[in-house]
Design a protein around this nucleic acid. Structure first.
Lengths: 251, 251
DNA sequence: CGCACCCTTGATCCTGCTCAAAGAAAGTGG
DNA sequence: CCACTTTCTTTGAGCAGGATCAAGGGTGCG
């Protein structure tokens, strides 16, 4: 299990590992995102039961986990890498509803199946739980369902924030908010938080913020000129004036 | 209990009625929105326990239920009238995150308290449950928490739809989607669905769709000229070409 | 090295916003 | 019940933020 702590050395499309004994529990500990995962704060017995139904998966970049409308047979917990969730209009317009990083949970679905498509951005490692078996566990361990309600509520709060951003913020405010949120998420995970890592493309960012690629690019360029950020590379942005960025982002 | 079925005759700031015996269960039945409420499909025993902790409230229009950030001591179930939920930016820009009608549930909150403010649009009748007592019931009746998870999931799906609307739809598509959704919600409630009732102001609609009042008004005028709708009154719109409206709304 | 993809920048356009004014509806007080 | 005020809605004129169209530069991979 110790290999989970290491940086994955170019994990190109690794084959799915078979489920192993102490999986869920041991893995959550190993990948050091305990406080964020589905298994956070569960009792040992609950962890054991979860471990018995989990499958660990490794995926390359640009792989679909599922499509919008698919029947929701699994829920997932990301342990490494980045995933994007999105919805499409018939003519191809896309809205990304969320980026998931290590520790994040996905897969809640209404009666019409998954309400969004999920695709990996980078190579990804995740835990997959069959929804059917999870529901059986809920009967025995209501604490699991309590856990899930907490996750759903947090997601809902985030979704409402995103509505405010999409409906009422300007382009500059959107990009500033985005950078600050990514920074905060990094900190929560015990990472530096600055510089910010951007595993997604400009196009992904645009579709997340309700902008075009060009506007995202122009806004970042302007922020660079204004000394708010420094671009170490395409995927790494240093926040050089967090205070001013926060002012720009508006509360 | 029979007075619940009647139209409220100008119920100006009626005082809170004391909780009564068979409240939650009986009320849900009385207001004929059984299939939508928090109590939907619960066992008699669960209903009884809920009834014991519920308070029924009557509020006039333009009353605050709570403000964003307030500690979340209650959850609510609307039984009559309309409520709006919104978030504000420091400079006053507003995003309405949802309109609640009879049968709708509200009050889920993260650890920072309510994530939005709630204000009545029309005179409103609702059931209020103390969150603390509800949590105690969860221990005995996990089915209640299961119910809540279902509501949270539905809300999440709706929130993601709204993100797509806010981020990627044009003004005309937004307004068309809005009218169609209201119509569908009416139908689900056993109401006609056409004409559509608009208890909220143009300003509220604008802040829900991420537009200005003027754009909402102009778009409705254009739809009237295009014979897509007929405005019976300010608050009542007849959909005269649902098919074409649906095309306009884009999937 | 060459190709594909992504990113940046510029020029121009247009959707939706701002500003302004007048009409309609609804509440208020005499 | 009516005059008055306030609020909401509609419509017009002009503007601008961000989109679209277009071209060129980086970057990474085979």
């Amino acid at each position: 299990m110790t290999e989970l702590g290491q940086k994955l050395p170019k994990p190109v499309a690794m084959p799915t590992r078979p489920r192993s004994a102490g999986c869920a529990a041991a893995d959550c500990a190993a990948c050091e995102v305990r406080s964020l995962t589905f298994c956070a704060g569960l009792k040992p017995e609950e962890m054991g039961r979860l471990a018995a139904i989990v499958t660990r998966l490794n995926l390359a970049a640009r792989q679909m986990l599922f499509h919008e409308g698919d029947s929701a047979e699994f829920v997932y917990n990301v342990t490494h890498g980045a995933v994007k969730l999105y919805k499409l209009l018939p003519d191809g317009r896309r809205q990304i509803t969320g980026f998931l990083l290590a520790g994040d949970f996905l897969g809640l679905a209404g009666k019409d199946g998954y309400s969004y498509s999920a695709e990996t951005i980078s190579p990804v490692e995740l835990c997959r739980f069959p929804r059917r078996k999870l529901d059986q566990l809920f009967v025995v361990f209501p604490g699991l369902e309590h856990q899930l309600l907490g996750l759903a509520t947090d997601e809902l709060v985030a979704a409402q924030d995103q509505m405010l951003l999409l409906g009422r913020r300007t382009a500059a405010e959107k990009v500033a908010s985005f950078l600050l949120r990514l920074s905060e998420r990094g900190k929560v995970r015990g990472q530096p938080g600055n510089p910010v890592q951007l595993p997604m493309t400009r196009g992904d960012i645009a579709d997340y913020l309700g902008l075009t690629i060009e506007t995202v690019s122009r806004t970042l360029s302007q922020m660079r000129r204004d000394q708010l950020i420094r671009q170490r590379s395409l995927t790494e942005i240093e926040l050089t004036a967090v205070e001013r960025l926060a002012d720009l982002a508006q509360g």
